[in-house]
Design a protein around this nucleic acid. Structure first.
Lengths: 229, 229, 229, 229
DNA sequence: TATGAATGAGTTTTCATTCAT
DNA sequence: AATGAATGAAAACTCATTCAT
């Protein structure tokens, strides 16, 4: 955890640190991300970082396990899944894409947890993050099962991981291709909004959910949204 | 390309180099993988690697672009998709899992190409590898479309990427959880065969294809395989 | 250019670095001079040099293009050529020899710019230094021409280069033989003063100028200095 | 000295070695010249060089102390200094420039001996070469003194070194500027002949000798050549 | 609390030389 | 005689971390 000093920092300074640290860790895997580089980016003395954090890992862990999820939750807000499950999922996916478009660094950081070649020091952390995501998604799918939207053809655990992959790396990948850009450029960019607007995002979300629904869905339950396609 | 010297090496030495290099690059992203470390692993002098390869990138490129695909092709053999498309895909997926179980290092190496935080020097290479994989898969799906197995609900490009994600990182992830192991332990292990045998692999492949088929499939076309489930 | 850190260093440390760097570069051509060696000479950690300079070239460039000329200008002071041109040249040459005797490392460093086998990275730099020297000398000779001291027998450009060679490598060479020492011993030595005192230097400077004057001089113009020899 | 094996080599192979070794040593100072590079240039196995020479130094020494002087002597032939001394010197200088133009590598190699930053291993060798050159030139100037062409204004030793500098590095420098090229490019070039033809060389030689003669010459002795200028 | 200089372990790469075939 | 694979020492350079001010 960051040291108390960090939280006592003036807001703008603390946010500067957070912003540039996210950018650095989004652009490079943990082992290649460089504290020296973050110091350069921010113009803050290298030594100061050791007043704020124990070490590089402490900073990374906090960003990945606390800050990124917090901001993501805040951005996504609450999505209702108990009415029309598939419509709920579509909203959820669309908001995820909006998050990617508006906070590519954070989104990338969150995705980094899935990298299996990560340095030894961060493996445990990554695993925990992944499991947390899976657990959340599994709970969500269970809502779909209870509501009758999801059929029991595929074991829940497997289904969860498949869905996780589709709406995680899968959609990220598609979004990047849409943008015609490598992640790297996206991170540097400022207004992706213009390039992948809400309408396009909705269409993509719809296609993805259509795909998932086909794979998991209960043929009995039809929704209005589904029918007019 | 490796230097001629490398190909003239005694088989055991060359294989030692290949094996340990794959392990190193499977365990670490390109930038963190270390030639010094490979030298230590193999007990071969650091200088010798520069008799075999131009530099670190040369070795990596060869492994990723030549050796891994070659071994994978060899392992997978030819799969027929023109009969029962979904049965073909299931076989294809099952063999992919077998490859992962028997050559986890190679499989991981091939997957590394999807890492968007890769060092600048390898980005072009990674992109090319990814595109090649996508192109191959798209051709494959087109066979499914022609044969009537795949419906036209989702644009081909998007469908291709979704499927790619499912049978790539998606299944890899699932297999690893099944094995209850992190990738780096898997890389060290020798007999995964015992732990994820053919029967289990077939069941997983079936679930995955069921998922994809639901998402893309044409409800009109039923196969025998499908019915007795 | 050196980093600000370097200029903020305590004087003794900065001078230690400068002194040993000059010695290293005076003893070895750029490509063979070693930062590791300078680190060893000074007892300063290798890494510290990269706090002071961008890289090896940065240090070399600064020494060669800034520090050596600065110290030389400071040492030489202003020499008047508009009175008796040949007497002015003699003073100039004598002071040059004094500089060589008191700052052999710097003098050698400056001379290194003439080495045509220099590594590719420094060729441009060397060329620029050489041209600057030639340009300065040419301007000086033009003063001699205007004052009537120099006759027009030899084209100015050629004359400039010949004179440059005589008072540059030519005199350096002679001085070293006088000292009966190889350059690298001279570099290590501290009191050349004793061994090549002012009187001897004056005699050498006189001979050199006599030589040049014969080659370029206008027989019409005689100076007092000349006559009483 | 080269091993007997070297002299038993087929002529073309031996000459290939000599040619490329000269080129390498002409382009780089001893320490930077690379046997590996010569091996690459010639296509001869690195190991073979150790059948021909003890080591890198052995090769270098032989080239510098034996082969270069031999070829230079052969090229220059005998020049008569006992008639008109200054005309003799002019011929000598002109032939020296022709040698530079036709064998830039050899000429550069010979000049390398004057480099005072040479690696420790070759310093003794360089010193000896230089002394030999100086001794030869001193003998030559003594002929001029005996014949009355040279006056006694400047001590012989100093005069010798001044002249040596003028006709050595001085003229080389001028020739290169004339060619508008850096040494490096000259070494790669094949037909300098075209670019610095005999007429131009004669004019340069004349200017240089005029310069030297002014510096050392006896005003009493006039030659025909001198008068029509 | 902020700074930034100091450090040394680590990396990639080159090279002369040896030696078995 | 020729080969070319093997080697280890050395280079330039980067980085996380410490610590005195």
């Amino acid at each position: 955890m960051p040291k108390p000093t960090f939280f006592r920092l003036p807001d703008d300074r603390r946010e500067l640190v957070v912003r540039e640290a996210i950018a650095e860790f989004a652009e490079h895997a943990y082992a290649d991300a460089s504290l020296s580089q973050i110091a350069r980016r921010t113009g803050i003395a290298k030594g100061s970082f050791y007043q704020y954090f124990e070490d590089k890992l402490d900073l990374y862990r906090w960003l990945l396990a606390e800050e990124a999820p917090r901001k993501k939750r805040e951005f996504l807000g609450a999505v209702r899944f108990d009415g029309d499950f598939w419509a709920g999922l579509e909203t959820y996916v669309e908001r995820g894409m909006a998050f990617l478009v508006e906070h590519p660094g954070l989104a990338r950081l969150a995705a980094a947890a899935a990298d299996p070649t990560a340095a030894a020091e961060v493996r445990g952390l990554h695993l925990a993050i992944c499991e947390a995501g899976i657990t959340e998604l599994r709970a969500l799918l269970q809502v779909g099962i209870k509501g009758g939207a999801i059929a029991r053809g595929i074991p829940l655990d497997i289904a969860t991981r498949l869905v996780s992959t589709v709406i995680g790396p899968g959609l990220t990948d598609i979004v990047l291709r849409e943008l015609g850009a490598e992640l790297h450029e996206v991170l540097a960019s400022t207004s992706l909004q213009r390039e992948l607007g809400p309408a396009r995002r909705r269409r993509l979300a719809h296609a993805a959910v259509l795909f998932i629904r086909g794979g998991l869905g209960n043929p009995q339950s039809k929704t209005k949204k589904e029918r007019h396609r």
